[in-house]
Design a protein around this nucleic acid. Sequence first.
DNA 1: CGTCAAATTGATCGACTTCAATGCTCGTGG
DNA 2: CCACGAGCATTGAAGTCGATCAATTTGACG
Lengths: 275, 275
Amino acid sequence: MNNAIRAVDGSFEVNHAVRFAGAAVGTAERHRLLDLLHLMGAQVNEVVPADALEPITLRRLSAGAALFHEGARADFVYVVRTGSFKTFHTTEDGYEQVLAFAGRADVLGFDAVCLGYHPTAVVALEDSAVYVLPMSKFFTLAQRVAVLDRAVHWAVSRQLCHRSDLMAGVTAAEVRLARFLLLLSRRAAASGQPALRIHLSMSRRDIASYLGLTHETISRSFGALADWDYVAVKRREIEILDVVGLKAFSCVSRRHVEEASRPASHVSSTVRLSP
Amino acid sequence: MNNAIRAVDGSFEVNHAVRFAGAAVGTAERHRLLDLLHLMGAQVNEVVPADALEPITLRRLSAGAALFHEGARADFVYVVRTGSFKTFHTTEDGYEQVLAFAGRADVLGFDAVCLGYHPTAVVALEDSAVYVLPMSKFFTLAQRVAVLDRAVHWAVSRQLCHRSDLMAGVTAAEVRLARFLLLLSRRAAASGQPALRIHLSMSRRDIASYLGLTHETISRSFGALADWDYVAVKRREIEILDVVGLKAFSCVSRRHVEEASRPASHVSSTVRLSP
DNA sequence: CGTCAAATTGATCGACTTCAATGCTCGTGG
DNA sequence: CCACGAGCATTGAAGTCGATCAATTTGACG
């Protein structure tokens, strides 16, 4: 209990704090907590009570594996360490509606907090790994480790922001796709990866479901963006050729795309960069 | 500081706790904190430290007034006590994209936590009132009052859930509107109001923007739902006549609405309940 | 009563869905 | 090794839902 008090006031470096607390906690676990906090962008400069350092399990999933199914009891909250996921809802007639894509440092399963069960399913798009936080211990842990509490608030807030990035709107299909690509670009940049070289971890079908279109339309829209020299498309590898142009194009909100807003493709000579 | 410790362990009723803490806090403020926690559905059975009971201001807004503008510095987080709001984003060419509608107990402005500024604007749809929580004191307060922390987590989780209720999808306009009405019905029921009598606090235009349609289409869709005797529409007063039918209808995910899924409206005699 | 915004209704047109057929990769097994 | 198939992706053709433009009605408020 005294540890908890010191946790609130202290300002030692965590490495020291753990050593001070001197509990019998394995080195691996210690690093996992630090890694988790670092992953979430927290500035760790406070004491972490020893009894808060319960083992944090790291779960690995291979591509296509389900993290949890729709309707499953909400026993855990997850934080993505590596890889990527899709969150989706399956309607009664079997249509799969993708609600979000999650990447590094994203929180998964938090929407279950208010329900007790998961309203959506989550599957890995590639080989991935997540930190697993038991729901029951989650809140007490957050209550004792202030920096974790802040980090979670911050991450959830970010999730709420992403909602606004791509709401339906009365926008043309190509514009929606352009926004989506820019979103991925920003996310990649935030994770330290090259911002103009995007590897799509999801299928065209998933993108279509996410954007409220059909996969055929997505295919055509990719073709259009390529024809206009905004991007180069080769399977799931996307290269953004004209960032400023693409950003300008993505601002159009009406359906009817003005001729002036896209580059004069002349007689559409189709200068697609092909291998 | 001792108060804070007792706050973690204690399990007295708050009314007593406040009296125990015995600080010079006005009666009004005391009730406001309780009201706020009660509003958010928290089971208040722990001691609240006296120094956590800083004044909680209640801000009143008349219909059409802005709670905050897009891009404004994020100094506060708000909780709706009465009334309703719309959250929206204005694109460069002036199009107003509605992102969410907020009602009783909803948290507003939380998406600004990760940015430092508000990515969206919020205006009151009717005369309303919100509790104002200063951002700077918010986290320290949540850290000391565990029940508040939980309540916020819970409320934000609920907000994440609502996202999934209405994502774009390749669904017919009438189906989207049906889902929207059912959403409002559920919300009204959660606030203790009659679930089948809905008063729309937002304009058709706002609904259109929210659902990614035009207001003309919304108007026609209302007409269609009325023609099929799912609802009775009179200006902004909606009465749900056939809940089960409407729910069944709202499950259709494809655009092409099967003839079988809607009730045989015969020769469309239009039995709209009109005065 | 006159003005303005919200809401309804109609007509036309285009973008996206839908249905259908073909290419393309990759993994499996004969 | 190549044939085979499964899933993903692309391309084409036709139908239609919803956007757009435009006119009218309704209701709210000064």
